[in-house]
Design a binder for these strands. Structure first.
Lengths: 354, 354
DNA sequence: GATCCAGTCTGTATCGATACAGAGACTAAC
DNA sequence: GTTAGTCTCTGTATCGATACAGACTGGATC
C-alpha cells in the first residue's frame, strides 16, 4: 500500500494540512520545514498528492475531454481529425491541461454512460455523426463545451468554432460549374444514417439530418441552381464511413454507366481521394475524364493534386480548446467562424468533348 | 449548484446507498424503486454519479495515460506516433477505457508534476527522448506501465512491446551494403541531446544515450562492419526534431560536398523523406544519385517509393494497451517482440559509376 | 410455529486530499 | 507595555461518492 499524505504527516510530526501545503502552497510554510517534509516523503516513497482525491476536493480535474461521435480508432485514420487533435493538443499544452479521448461504445446507452463518466472539466465536441444526445449529456452535467459543427439549436451562450459550410461548398461547386460541368455527382458520408452505399434519391437537401453534410450539400446545390441545374438533376451518392475504399466502392457503379458524371463533388478530401483511387484503378482505356473536388485540404490533397476547399484544421482544434480553457467574457466572441479558401489544383478541368 | 446523490436520496426518501446502487448495482434493489429513483434524478437534473468521487472511492479511474516524451503537438505530426495512438485507441475502445494524453512541459520539474498529477490507472510510454525520469515517477506512483522502447535497465516484471531495433536496422544496412555502397551517411534524431544539426563525430555508437537511436545506429554499423567499413568511416548526421525540414537542413551540407555519400540510412521515415525532399529541391544537374532508406514504413513511405524497415505501428499501440489493460499472468508474455520486414522500393539502387 | 433464506434497503466508515478559520509566536510600531 | 500585523502551523469540515456489515420483510421449509 502506497503511503498517504497522512503517513507523511505522522512521520514528520506535523499536520496533514501542512504536508498538503508543502506540495500545493509552498508559501504557506517555512522553507526548512518544507524540505523536511519532502525528504520524508521521498524516504517513505510517497508519490505526491493523489490526483483523484485532489480533483475531488478542488472541484476541477485539469483535463479536457475530446469527444468524437465515432470510433476512436476511426478518428486517427481521418487526417482532418488528426490535425484537429494536434490543434487541441497545442492549446492544451499551453494551458498545462491534459486531453482525455473518450471512446464511445456503439450502443447509445453505453455511450451516454461514457460521457457521464468522463472525468474532465469540459468537452471539445468533434462531430462526425449526429451528436445531439452527447451535447444533452454534457449540458446535464453542467460542463462547458465547444462544438465544431453548426447546429440548428445552438444556444446563444454556447461556444462554437467552425466555418460557413454552405458558402465554402458553394465556392467549390461554382468553380466546377464554371468549367462547364452539368452532369455532376455529389458524394457524401452519412447522407442518411443507415442508408446503403451508392446513389440515393432525396426529395431535397433538407432531408439530410447531419448539419455539416447538409450544409455542404446545400452549398453544392446552390451553385448549380444558379446555372440552371436543379437538385433533381444532381446525382447524390452515399459513402458511409468516410474512407477512401468506401468512397471508391460507392462511386464505382456510377463510373460504369454509359454516361458517367463529368464531375464529382465530395464532402471531404478523404472521399475525393477515394474517387481518384477508383479512377486510377481502371485501365486507362475505360477511365472516364472526371473532375473531382474535395473538402478540408488535408496534407494528402496537395500531393494528389486535388482541388479542394481549405479550412484551417489545426486552428479549429486550437481555437476550440482555447474557447474552452479561457472563455471570452463577451458571449459573441465565443462564436468563431474561420475563413475558408478554394484551392484549385489539377483534379478539376473543363468538360471533355465527347 | 448541481444536485448530488444525497439530494436525490432525500427527494425519494431513501438512503444514499440505495441511490448509488440504482446506478452502479441495479441488482441490489427492486426494479420499481430503481425507476422511481432514476425518475427523481431526471427531474432534479442529477447528472449521475460524479466521476471523480466515484474514482476516489472505487480506487481506479477507468482511463490509461499515454505519455510522449515530447511535445504533444509533435506527436500528431509524426505519422508513426499517430498510428501508434490509433492502436492504443482500438484497445482502449474494446475495454471501455479512455485515453489521457499528457502533455509534458519543457522543464523537467514541471514535467514530473504532470506525470504525478495524471489521473490514470497506468501508462503506455512512447519514448521519443530520454524517458528514464518518467518511468521513475510512474514506478514511484506504483502504477503499471508498458514501455515501447528497449531499455537498458528493464526490470523482469516490467512490460514491454517493441522490436529488435538493432537487427531490423541491420537488415536495411545490409541491403544497402549489398548494393555496393561504401560512402554512407547515417542520419538520426537526438544522436546527442543538445547537439546541433549536421555531421557529428562520435568515438563509438555507445555514446548515443537514447536506446532506440543507439540500437538502430548500431545495427547500421554492424552491417557495414561486415563488409569492412568501420564506424569511423561512416558519416554520422544529427537531425534534431525528427521532421522532414530538419532532416533536409541537416543533410544539405553533406550533399554539397565534392564527394557526397552515395547512400543515406535514416533512423526514421520522416527523416528519410526529408532527405528525399532535400534532393528533390536541387536542380537536376547537381543532384547526386543517393540511395535512401527509412525506418517504420509509415503510409507516406509507399507513395514516395522509400525503401524502409516495416514495423507494425498500430499493432504496437494495440498490444501496449492490451498488456496494460489485461496483464498476462505469465511475466514472460509481458515482453513482446514484434516482427519487422525490409521493404525494398525505388529509393535504393546500385552505386552510380562516377 | 420456529427456522432459514433470499431479496431489499439502511447506516456508518472510508477513499485521500484541500479550504478556511483560527491559534501561537514573534516582530514592529506607537 | 499594549496593539497590530506577519509568519507558521493546526484542526475541523468537506468534496461526492462506494463498500460492507447488518436490519428488516415475507415466503418457503420442516
Amino acid at each position: 500500500m502506497k503511503p498517504t499524505l497522512q503517513a507523511v504527516a505522522d512521520a514528520v510530526g506535523v499536520s496533514r494540512s501542512t504536508v498538503s501545503n508543502a506540495y500545493s502552497r509552498p508559501d504557506q510554510l517555512s522553507a526548512t520545514l518544507r524540505e523536511r517534509i519532502l525528504d520524508a516523503a521521498r524516504q517513505l516513497g510517497y508519490p505526491g498528492p493523489n490526483p483523484t482525491a485532489r480533483s475531488l476536493r478542488r472541484g476541477f480535474v485539469g483535463s479536457i475531454g475530446v469527444l468524437f461521435t465515432s470510433q476512436l480508432s476511426y478518428a486517427f485514420t481521418d487526417p482532418f481529425a488528426v490535425r484537429f487533435l494536434a490543434g487541441v493538443g497545442t492549446a492544451a499544452e499551453r494551458h498545462g491541461t491534459s486531453m482525455l479521448l473518450v471512446p464511445l461504445p456503439p450502443a447509445v446507452t453505453d455511450a451516454r454512460r461514457a460521457v457521464e463518466n468522463a472525468a474532465v472539466d469540459g468537452f471539445c465536441v468533434y462531430c462526425v455523426a449526429d451528436e445531439e444526445w452527447a451535447l444533452d449529456v454534457i449540458r446535464q452535467r453542467g460542463l462547458p463545451f465547444v462544438s465544431t459543427a453548426s447546429r440548428d439549436d445552438a444556444g446563444d451562450d454556447e461556444r462554437f468554432v467552425g466555418i460557413d459550410e454552405r458558402a465554402a461548398a458553394r465556392s467549390a461547386a461554382a468553380h466546377v460549374a464554371g468549367l462547364g460541368h452539368r452532369r455532376v455527382a455529389l458524394l457524401a458520408d452519412s447522407v442518411l444514417p443507415g442508408a446503403p452505399a451508392g446513389p440515393l434519391t432525396l426529395v431535397g437537401v433538407d432531408q439530410v439530418p447531419h448539419p455539416t453534410t447538409r450544409g455542404r450539400l446545400a452549398g453544392f446545390a446552390d451553385a448549380f441552381a444558379e446555372v440552371g441545374v436543379g437538385w433533381a438533376e444532381l446525382t447524390l451518392v452515399n459513402a458511409p464511413g468516410n474512407s477512401r475504399p468506401a468512397a471508391a466502392a460507392a462511386i464505382a457503379g456510377l463510373l460504369d454507366q454509359p454516361a458517367p458524371p463529368t464531375a464529382v463533388l465530395a464532402g471531404s478530401d478523404v472521399l475525393a481521394l477515394g474517387v481518384l483511387d477508383a479512377l486510377a484503378a481502371r485501365p486507362a482505356r475505360d477511365r472516364p475524364t472526371v473532375s473531382v473536388t474535395g473538402f478540408d485540404d488535408v496534407p494528402e490533397a496537395a500531393a494528389a493534386g486535388l482541388t479542394t476547399v481549405r479550412q484551417p484544421a489545426e486552428e479549429k482544434g486550437r481555437i476550440a480548446a482555447e474557447l474552452l480553457l479561457d472563455p471570452p467574457a463577451d458571449a459573441a466572441a465565443g462564436h468563431v467562424l474561420l475563413p475558408t479558401a478554394l484551392i484549385v489544383r489539377g483534379s478539376t478541368g473543363p468538360v471533355p468533348r465527347s
